[in-house]
Amino acid sequence: EDGINLEEIREFAKNFKIRRLSLGLTQTQVGQALTATEGPAYSQSAICRFEKLDITPKSAQKLKPVLEKWLNEAELRNQEGQQNLMEFVG
Rank of each mutant, 00 (worst) to 15 (best):
residue 54 D to G: 04
residue 38 E to S: 08
residue 77 R to D: 07
residue 71 L to F: 03
residue 87 E to A: 07
residue 64 K to M: 12
residue 34 L to A: 01
residue 82 Q to N: 11
residue 52 K to M: 05
residue 60 A to N: 07
residue 66 V to M: 06
residue 33 A to V: 08
residue 76 L to S: 11
residue 42 Y to P: 03
residue 28 T to P: 06
residue 28 T to V: 11
residue 58 K to S: 13
residue 18 I to A: 15
residue 80 E to M: 10
residue 69 K to L: 06
residue 34 L to Q: 03
residue 39 G to H: 00
residue 67 L to C: 04
residue 64 K to W: 07
residue 38 E to P: 03
residue 13 A to V: 04
residue 45 S to Y: 12
residue 10 R to V: 11
residue 34 L to I: 09
residue 36 A to G: 06
residue 34 L to H: 00
residue 51 E to F: 00
residue 78 N to Y: 13
residue 79 Q to I: 13
residue 35 T to V: 10
residue 23 L to V: 00
residue 81 G to I: 05
residue 47 I to G: 02
residue 5 N to W: 09
residue 82 Q to L: 07
residue 22 S to P: 01
residue 7 E to D: 14
residue 49 R to C: 05
residue 6 L to W: 15
residue 89 V to A: 13
residue 90 G to W: 05
residue 17 K to Y: 08
residue 68 E to N: 13
residue 15 N to S: 14
residue 9 I to H: 02
residue 27 Q to K: 07
residue 73 E to F: 09
residue 1 E to M: 14
residue 24 G to Y: 03
residue 22 S to L: 10
residue 51 E to N: 01
residue 81 G to N: 09
residue 37 T to W: 06
residue 34 L to E: 05
residue 47 I to E: 01
residue 1 E to T: 07
residue 20 R to E: 00
residue 45 S to N: 12
residue 25 L to T: 03
residue 63 L to F: 11
residue 11 E to G: 04
residue 55 I to P: 03
residue 55 I to T: 08
residue 78 N to E: 13
residue 6 L to P: 12
residue 26 T to K: 01
residue 15 N to Y: 11
residue 50 F to L: 10
residue 8 E to S: 05
residue 84 N to V: 10
residue 42 Y to I: 12
residue 46 A to C: 08
residue 78 N to K: 09
residue 72 N to K: 12
residue 86 M to H: 10
residue 40 P to K: 13
residue 67 L to V: 01
residue 1 E to P: 00
residue 15 N to V: 05
residue 8 E to Y: 04
residue 38 E to I: 07
residue 8 E to Q: 10
residue 22 S to M: 10
residue 21 L to G: 05
residue 52 K to T: 12
residue 86 M to V: 11
residue 21 L to C: 09
residue 13 A to S: 05
residue 17 K to H: 10
residue 9 I to D: 01
residue 30 V to Y: 00
residue 33 A to S: 13
residue 12 F to S: 05
residue 78 N to L: 10
residue 36 A to N: 09
residue 39 G to Q: 00
residue 20 R to A: 03
residue 53 L to S: 02
residue 10 R to D: 06
residue 18 I to W: 08
residue 90 G to F: 01
residue 8 E to W: 02
residue 2 D to N: 15
residue 71 L to R: 04
residue 19 R to F: 00
residue 11 E to L: 09
residue 73 E to K: 10
residue 80 E to W: 06
residue 1 E to V: 03
residue 86 M to D: 14
residue 6 L to I: 13
residue 52 K to P: 03
residue 54 D to R: 06
residue 70 W to V: 04
residue 5 N to V: 09
residue 86 M to F: 09
residue 82 Q to S: 11
residue 33 A to F: 10
residue 36 A to F: 06
residue 20 R to W: 00
residue 21 L to P: 01
residue 19 R to Q: 02
residue 47 I to N: 01
residue 15 N to I: 04
residue 74 A to L: 05
residue 2 D to E: 12
residue 46 A to H: 09
residue 32 Q to G: 08
residue 20 R to V: 01
residue 58 K to E: 15
residue 27 Q to M: 12
residue 11 E to C: 06
residue 22 S to V: 09
residue 82 Q to I: 04
residue 51 E to Y: 03
residue 66 V to K: 10
residue 74 A to V: 07
residue 11 E to A: 08
residue 13 A to F: 04
residue 87 E to F: 01
residue 68 E to F: 04
residue 61 Q to V: 12
residue 90 G to D: 15
residue 44 Q to Y: 12
residue 68 E to R: 01
residue 77 R to V: 11
residue 64 K to E: 04
residue 5 N to P: 07
residue 54 D to P: 01
residue 9 I to Y: 05
residue 71 L to W: 04
residue 23 L to S: 05
residue 50 F to M: 06
residue 85 L to P: 11
residue 23 L to G: 03
residue 11 E to D: 07
residue 4 I to D: 06
residue 4 I to S: 12
residue 68 E to G: 02
residue 26 T to S: 11
residue 66 V to Q: 05
residue 67 L to Q: 03
residue 43 S to Q: 01
residue 37 T to H: 05
residue 75 E to T: 05
residue 87 E to C: 04
